[in-house]
Design a protein around this nucleic acid. Structure first.
Lengths: 223, 223
DNA sequence: CTGCATCCGCCTCGATACTG
DNA sequence: CAGTATCGAGGCGGATGCAG
């Protein structure tokens, strides 16, 4: 009953023995954005097949990556354990790499708003936040999130910013990810009305710089 | 003729469309340690099947992750492109995570010396190198590599250290990886003769600290 | 001999139907 | 809603064949 494994005493091979099968990392991607119920996962992963999802979930629970949340029937679901949360950094690294592999959206591919939150976390370069102290808010489809920079330390957070952000961007999921994939510049998206920007223009430039969407240096923040 | 893909406009899904199939990341692991010939890859990846290796290589070349090296028939092989090299960080992250999933070596699993070099890179924590300026050398089976710290900046390098390292460790691949997986402490390995240490004891402690094998603080380096 | 391509049995995957 | 059972299709693994 033991599944197929690589039989190599190596960290990467051991990781892939647990995570390497089809759909597994995408399930973990969804759970990185919060607890999910079985039906929600099915809806976010079209094509997975119900038996496969059940198999993967059971397997990941057995290996300590996931646990069941909410024993009270009302909020029953799955969530990452601390071990599972530790996958965040490498998964974001793969997501950033994958962004460069994305071409123009083919129309066949679906884009979910909350993947924009994942993309923002992958794109965010903390080393570019020195000397900045402000917040940028994003409305991508029905998903709201923001970047808050305190003492040059940026954090990506779900939900609206508690206060007035220096910039607010409103767009749809496909446009947001297309910008992240560098298939579309923010300027082009703005010009074609697919992106709406509010707030300070220089803050917008700093935000683009922070996300690797603009080369060189960002304009300094006024005191 | 297009292979199976997830059909999601998302960075992680795009990465997995290229890297997610069986054996692919292990092929890239081998190439992270230098160019390899087809036959060498076959030998390092027992069980892969010759057709699958050829398919994966062709696919990765098509997608710009690999290229053929050495057009001169004598040194023909495969090597990572710059795009492929960018996978180093997330792959090392997965390898570090996977180290914690490794149990005791089962005897059925094979351990290659150069995977120790991968493990060292995954375990190395640059934030723990402040104030240190020395080198540690490792002999793991037939593989030689070392960590060189200059101005608090550690680097893992293949080959012997050009000079006298502050510490030299000699062991076999299985023991080295078992220590990395925390299934065995350096002390136990030393006591059972599976590990040989030469050089300054306090340097050894600093090296263990740097690799996350010792908690708390490392002893300071004498001037 | 190295570097693949072909063939075949098996296991995983994906879709649908069904149960608590 | 949350899974389990079933089955066809296709990817995988191993052996073998063949070309440079």
């Amino acid at each position: 009953m033991t599944r197929r494994n690589y039989g190599q005493y190596c960290g990467l091979a051991a990781a892939l023995d647990v995570l390497g099968e089809r759909w597994t990392l995408l399930i973990i991607r969804e759970l990185l954005l919060g607890p999910r119920r079985y039906g929600e996962l099915l809806a976010e992963l079209p094509g997975i097949g119900t038996n496969l999802l059940a198999d993967r979930l059971k397997f990941l629970v057995e290996h300590g990556v996931l646990r069941r949340s909410g024993a009270t029937g009302s909020e029953r679901g799955y969530e990452l354990t601390e071990l599972g949360e530790q996958l965040k950094a490498p998964i974001l690294g793969l997501a950033r790499w994958g962004l460069t592999m994305l071409g123009a959206p083919s129309g066949e591919e679906l884009a979910r708003p909350h993947w924009g939150f994942l993309a923002v976390q992958a794109m965010l370069d903390p080393s570019r936040a020195a000397g900045i102290d402000e917040a940028y808010e994003f409305h991508v489809g029905e998903a709201d999130f923001h970047i808050s920079i305190k003492d040059g330390h940026p954090r990506a957070v779900e939900g609206k910013f508690a206060g007035t952000p220096a910039m607010r961007a409103t767009t749809d999921a496909a446009t947001f990810l297309e910008i992240g994939a560098k298939q579309l510049t923010p300027f082009e998206a703005l010009a074609t009305g697919r992106l709406l920007l509010e707030g300070d223009t220089s803050a917008t430039m700093r935000c683009c710089f922070l996300l690797g969407l603009a080369p060189g240096a960002a304009p300094e923040q006024a005191a």
